[in-house]
């Protein structure tokens, strides 16, 4: 039982990260119906920038929490800038082009960002310096670490803030209007271009925080970490119903738990015919399953075959 609980805790932590990244996908998709393939790379850039800053400050005698905070603060604007540039350069000129075009540029941007990061930070993984003392708390036979608690709390906080912004502020109303019908929203005096840029920037900021979270959790960051994470987060967004904020959060957490339980129990359940080696398959299976049987996802109302 304690092992099961431990797996749930692992899944919850991982799922919180997926959820934050999935929010970025879902927001962009909701507003311009584009799968931003390069979103995962923003997570990577966030982690790398933060790690560089944290490593540089590790020698000083600042309190560790402050150092991490400064790292996050450094990562957010960089990611925002990259997110903004991405939209301006690669997506905006293609907004009226056929669907295939921005999708292909998105893949291109993803490759370019990955290899630019390689040039800046080299191939060697960056390690998280040992500044945060490792603490654990027993809970029902399992243990939960300080970092895990921090990750779960931060993501809950960010989801709350984002929900507030989208549903309670003027900007949020403008975003929702644009997503409903950009033409009419434009006629009502909303600056569509600005709203779209803003969506990208918010998504990028979320990605930056997610990058720091996942990097701190595992203690390692490298130039190739974004793509698979991005793919999985996208699957989470689809699972929850793409374009739907609550769906992204639910999908992320569910996917995290599915992965943890899958890797933990599939071996025992199938008499070791399948094992943890299929861990990365689960996300894709979920993705394909959802798209085939319920394209609208768990909470979504959109249909999967919009062109």
């Amino acid at each position: 039982m304690d092992i099961f609980l431990q797996q749930i805790i692992n899944g919850l932590t991982l799922g919180s990260v997926y959820a934050i990244v999935a929010l970025g996908y879902t927001m962009v998709y909701g507003i311009i119906q584009l799968i931003n393939f390069a979103h995962g790379e923003l997570v990577m850039i966030g982690a790398m920038v933060a790690f560089s800053v944290i490593n540089a400050l590790a020698g000083t005698h600042l309190p560790p929490v402050l150092i991490v905070f400064i790292g996050i603060l450094a990562a957010i604007p960089v990611c925002m800038l990259v997110g903004y540039a991405m939209e301006r350069i690669a997506y905006r000129p293609l907004r009226s082009a056929p669907r295939l075009a921005p999708l292909i540029t998105a893949i291109g941007i993803s490759i370019i960002l990955q290899h630019l990061a390689l040039l800046v930070w080299s191939r060697n993984p960056l390690a998280f310096p040992q500044i945060i003392p490792f603490v654990t708390f027993p809970i029902g036979g399992a243990i939960i670490s300080g970092v895990q608690i921090a990750i779960i709390l931060t993501s809950v906080l960010m989801m709350g803030a984002l929900t507030f912004m989208v549903y309670r502020t003027k900007l949020g109303i403008a975003m929702r209007a644009t997503s409903q019908n950009p033409l009419v929203a434009g006629l009502m005096g909303i600056d569509i271009d600005r709203i779209i840029s803003f969506t990208f920037i918010v998504g990028a900021a979320l990605a930056a925080v997610a990058g720091v979270m996942v990097g701190t959790y595992y203690g390692i960051a490298h130039y190739g970490m974004g793509s698979l994470l991005g793919m999985k987060a996208f699957s989470a967004a689809v699972l929850g119903g793409i374009g739907n904020l609550a769906g992204a959060m639910l999908g992320g957490i569910l996917l995290g738990i599915v992965e943890a339980l899958g890797a933990g129990y599939i071996g025992d359940l199938t008499n070791n015919v399948f094992g943890s080696n299929y861990q990365d398959v689960f996300a894709f299976m979920v993705l394909i399953g959802v798209l085939v049987f319920r394209p609208s996802g768990l909470l979504g109302e959109r249909v999967g075959d919009r062109a």
Partner: peptide, 19 residues
Amino acid sequence: LPREKGTDKTTDFMAILTK
């Protein structure tokens, strides 16, 4: 014990290790 596997890019071993 039955073989457990990650990949050459895996950073999350929590599920395997908990098992």
